[in-house]
Design a protein around this nucleic acid. Structure first.
Length: 479
RNA sequence: GGUCUCGUAGUAUAACGGUUAGUACAUCGGGUUUUCAUCCCGACAACGCGGGUUCGACUCCCGCCGAGAUCACCA
């Protein structure tokens, strides 16, 4: 049987790292089994609807490479994929329930319901609406909510992550199926949609675990086959024990993209947060995740979000793309991350810069701060120079002498390349008898005035003879 | 409060009932001709508590404690 999964977000805002896993796992499972993932937009709450949120959701999935097989944009045989466009379908199924006596229109005003609830709270007994079921119910028509008529009974079921589950009749209640505005509730709509769309695996956060018995009752009353149920544990906020949410400052997934995190790293990190394949592998490509993914190995307790590890993984991915796919491949990802002044420089030059700096990037946006001296002359700051912990050991006369000697040697260099520059540097070392730390720090700071930079000979090679000498001369004059 | 779920280092996790409880991130040391980073080596650090069952329990059972989820005309 073909496996069909779905990701069914409501368009109330951006997708953040706390909830994107419910898109990743369905995707992996579907792809692993040559099945399909459906994207369905659950927009039945008109009050919380946010304009543009659907676009945000689509962007996020596209960036991560979680391409849905059916849904908005791509279409498919089970559309429409917006719940707001499926009203007749819900009403059709609702009528079936009414006809079989399993649903009723409920005219009880909200204030009275609140009173019932309040009374139960005071008496410290569970509030169950079925105990307050109205005796005479009108015919169902727009403006009156439709409730399920629950039967108090026990259910057992199997959750692919949580294992065998059991619940008693005390959790079964007359849940609202259709709201008074005519829109279905999540509880009803998702059951109908999953069935109509042929969804075989319902994967969602654990928060739905407690309402599962009510869903089972609905499948039963509707004579629908029960799909496999998969509860995904929460991702916890860095602080405290709450699930990661927007109020903990959970950033949107695309914000990480804009901050220079690679999609590969993001997917890798999130997939492995609360899941592992039992090996000690840490770096997974999307294809490897698809190949190795398994429901059984999803963790059943919440996992804390750890941005430090994400950034480590991102560094790993930056280096991996560079070494496996080449400098150009990495360069194509860096377009938006160079300092503004770099716009005037050629791709070729920027690729050279990237090639010597890439292994110290944690995120691509580090380029902005780390590469400026490749594009403009640094401001000469003699204090920084002479206060450096190595250069401090040299007298001003020595500094001047060393700079002059370096300039002279480099001027005589016939072919300007990294190896030859290194030879010169080595010669200078033996000739002056200075320690590498002293001489190299002096030159490094004089040409960059940066807190750190790549190996000296590489930096000088990329900068070129003219600029290197010009900067050294400028510093020599300022001493 | 009712119902349900979870509990291995700071974090993420591994371990047929028998291991010096493994790995990674973080932290702290050390190494690779300057810095920062990479890379390499090393160190620190965990089975929530109490009972059982067993020759033997992180692993099975019970109790406790702790944490979380849910009890909406939100999803």
């Amino acid at each position: 049987m073909e496996i069909i999964t779905r990701f069914a977000p409501s368009p109330t805002g951006y997708i953040h790292i706390g909830n994107v896993r419910s898109a990743i796992y369905p995707y992996l499972l579907a792809k692993q089994n040559k099945g399909k993932m459906i994207l369905r937009i659950e927009d039945t709450d008109r009050a919380r609807y946010v304009e543009g949120a659907t676009k945000l959701i689509e962007d996020t999935l596209e960036w991560l490479g979680l391409n849905w097989d059916e849904g908005p944009i791509v279409g498919g045989p089970h559309g429409p994929y917006f719940q707001s466009e499926r009203m007749e379908i819900y009403h059709k199924w609702a009528r079936k329930l009414i006809e079989s006596g399993r649903a009723y229109a409920d005219p009880t005003p909200p204030e009275q319901i609140a009173q019932h609830r309040e009374k139960c709270n005071q008496e410290k007994i569970p509030f169950l609406y079925r105990n307050f079921r109205p005796e005479n119910t009108p015919e169902w028509k727009p403006g009156i909510p439709l409730r399920f008529k629950a039967e108090p009974k026990s259910y057992t079921w199997h959750d692919e992550v949580m294992g065998d589950m059991h619940a008693g009749p005390e959790v079964l209640d007359d849940i609202i199926l259709i709201k008074k505005d005519g829109y279905p509730t999540y509880n009803f709509a998702h059951i109908v949609d999953d069935a109509e769309m042929g969804v075989t695996h319902v994967m969602r956060g654990v928060e739905y675990l407690s309402s599962t018995p009510n869903y089972l009752a609905l499948y039963e009353a509707l004579h629908l086959a029960q799909p496999k149920l998969v509860s995904l544990p929460h991702i916890l906020a860095p602080q405290g024990n709450k699930k990661l949410g927007k109020r903990d400052g959970a950033k949107s997934v695309t914000e990480y993209r804009d901050d220079g995190v690679l999609a590969e790293a993001m997917l890798n990190y999130l997939a492995c947060l609360g899941w592992n394949d039992g090996t000690e592998q840490e770096i997974y490509t999307k294809d490897e995740l698809i190949k190795n993914f398994s429901l059984e190995r999803i963790q059943n307790s919440g996992a804390r979000y750890d941005e430090t590890k994400l950034l480590w993984l991102n560094g790993q991915w930056i280096r991996r793309i560079f070494t496996e796919q080449g400098a150009e491949a990495l360069y194509t990802r860096t377009t938006n991350f160079w300092p503004e002044i770099a716009n005037d420089f050629s791709d070729e030059y920027k690729i050279k810069v990237l090639s010597i700096i890439y292994d110290r990037l944690k995120t691509l946006s580090d380029l902005r701060e780390m590469t400026t001296y490749f594009f403009e002359d640094p401001r000469i700051d003699i204090d920084t120079l002479i206060n450096n912990k190595f250069i401090k050991k040299l007298s001003e006369a020595e500094i001047e002498e060393l700079l002059k000697l370096t300039i002279a040697k480099l001027t005589d260099l016939k072919e300007w390349n990294a190896d030859n520059i290194q030879t010169i540097l080595n010669e200078l070392l033996t000739k002056t008898g200075k320690k590498p730390a002293e001489l190299f720090s002096l030159i490094r700071i004089a040409i960059s005035f940066a807190p750190f930079s790549p190996a000296l000979n590489l930096t000088m090679d990329v900068l070129g003879r003219d600029i290197t000498l010009a900067r050294l001369n400028a510093v020599a004059r300022s001493i």
